[in-house]
């Protein structure tokens, strides 16, 4: 089953050529080479992958886990019906 983290990992591996093993929930984005500008671009790709619209409000995202939670919140708000069918990753991301 594809959790939100799995799908986010696919994006990051494809775009940033990062080692999947490095993409743990507590990994800081900055340490992965994804600065605020990188986050802006990541948001664009998340919109495509998860079929959500990122609101205009700024949001502080420091770690991979923060991004996972943010995506899950957006999906829950914007696709409430689909969410129950999806595999909720929530904070308790499966150990990697």
């Amino acid at each position: 089953m594809n959790t939100t983290l799995d799908r986010l990992r696919v994006l990051l591996v494809k775009d940033y050529k990062l080692e999947p093993d490095l993409l743990t929930p507590d990994a800081p984005l900055e340490a992965l080479g994804i600065d605020s500008l990188g986050v802006a671009e990541l948001m664009f790709n998340i919109e495509d992958e998860f079929e959500v619209t990122i609101p205009g409000d700024p949001v502080a995202l420091a770690t991979v886990g923060d991004v996972v939670r943010y995506i899950d919140d957006l999906v829950a708000t914007q696709h409430p019906a689909a969410e129950s069918a999806a595999v909720a990753s929530d904070v308790a991301v499966p150990a990697l």
Partner: peptide, 8 residues
Amino acid sequence: FEPPKLRM
């Protein structure tokens, strides 16, 4: 160039 930089 490393991928994160190359993308810019």
